[in-house]
């Protein structure tokens, strides 16, 4: 708990420091950064809507970590999930929303699951580390989804590299217009609650935790290594896919090239900050979303360049990973 607070403070002070050093108008930039999500309804809604995506993605990665696996393929899995949903929405005949929405979400989750589970299977079957295989497949998938959106699904009338809009009946309800906050927030809440119950109460969650904590012990207890090499990373892939579908149905309503970019990495950042507890995942998602909105608010108001925003985000990821490495080193001594 204390560690989390320290990390949060460290991240916030690092952000402040970087903005103060690099912005030509430090005072205004910093004020804008901290007040960012609360400046108006739109900003607040954006804050929550990006946090809810991070909750979904981060929860998946947390489960993956608990299962002792690492999934670096988030970018590709989110994008593929969204693309699967999008393809289904555009190509299948028009359906009522209450049928279409679950179907599109399922398509995204299954796609994400299969992609990630492949890495788990490769690990089990051929001892190819999922860290590498998930990263490489993700790279290829991003290209493929870019191709889908810029090629077969492309809206020829648009100047954007984008598809047509999905039917209005398929979209998630707006909760706080004009902000992008939408009913996906309930999905995120359900994911957080379900994952908590799954991990800490269910038979499978127990096995997954034991396998992740000490695989020899789990095998000793007769827990199947194959299932639990595939399940943790598979779940993280499914939730990444879900995040992609929610971004599509709740925010963008159409595929735009690269429209889910960043969610994969930010999901990992959330899980790293959160550590193991689902409650902490909520907290970490809010923190990361806060920083995102804060930076974009700082960019909108003061003379902060786009590159500076990228630098600050990069710095946060480095701090988070350093913290994890540090902990590993302490364990050694």
């Amino acid at each position: 708990m204390k560690g989390k607070l320290v990390v949060s403070l460290l991240i916030l002070s690092l952000t402040t420091l970087l903005l103060a050093l690099l912005s030509p108008e430090p005072a205004e930039t910093i004020v804008r950064f901290f007040t960012g999500p609360f400046r108006n309804i739109y900003a607040f809604g954006s804050f929550l809507s990006s946090a809810l995506l991070l909750v979904i993605a981060g929860t998946g990665i947390s489960i993956c970590f608990r299962g002792g696996q690492f999934n670096l393929g988030g970018e590709g899995q989110v994008y593929s999930g969204a693309a699967a949903s999008l393809t289904a929405a555009l190509l299948l005949p028009l359906m009522p929303g209450f049928i279409a929405k679950p179907l599109l979400i399922a398509a995204a989750m299954i796609t994400g699951f299969l992609i990630a589970a492949l890495s788990g299977w490769l690990r089990h079957r051929f001892s190819i580390h999922e860290l590498i295989s998930s990263y490489l497949t993700s790279g290829a998938l991003v290209f493929f989804c870019d191709f889908l959106i810029s090629g077969p699904l492309r809206d020829e009338e648009s100047f954007l590299i984008a598809t047509q809009r999905i039917p209005g009946a398929y979209t998630l309800a707006q909760l706080l217009p004009p902000s992008p906050l939408h009913s996906g927030i309930f999905i995120a809440a359900a994911v957080a609650a379900a994952s908590h119950i799954f991990l800490h109460r269910s038979v499978w969650g127990y096995r997954l935790r034991m396998f992740g904590e000490q695989s020899t012990f789990a095998r000793f207890g007769g827990i199947s290594p194959r299932t639990y090499r595939i399940m943790p990373i598979g779940i993280s892939g499914a939730l990444y896919g879900l995040a992609g579908a929610v971004a599509l149905l709740g925010i963008h309503y159409r595929g735009i090239q690269g429209f889910t970019a960043g969610l994969g990495w930010n999901g990992i950042a959330v899980a790293l900050i959160a550590g193991t507890s689902p409650v902490m995942t909520l907290y970490a998602a809010l923190l990361v979303a806060y920083i995102e909105i804060g930076i974009s608010s700082a960019m909108a108001g003061a003379a902060v360049t786009y590159d500076l925003g990228l630098i600050v985000r990069g710095a946060i990821l480095i701090v988070v990973t350093l913290k994890v490495l540090k902990r590993k080193q302490e364990e050694l001594l």
Binding site: Y206, R209, M210, E213, Q214, T216, F217, A218, F220
Partner: peptide, 12 residues
């Protein structure tokens, strides 16, 4: 390594 998961609870 085999007999226990040392970082887990007694219940686990």
């Amino acid at each position: 390594v085999t007999g226990t998961a040392v970082r887990c609870s007694v219940t686990d």
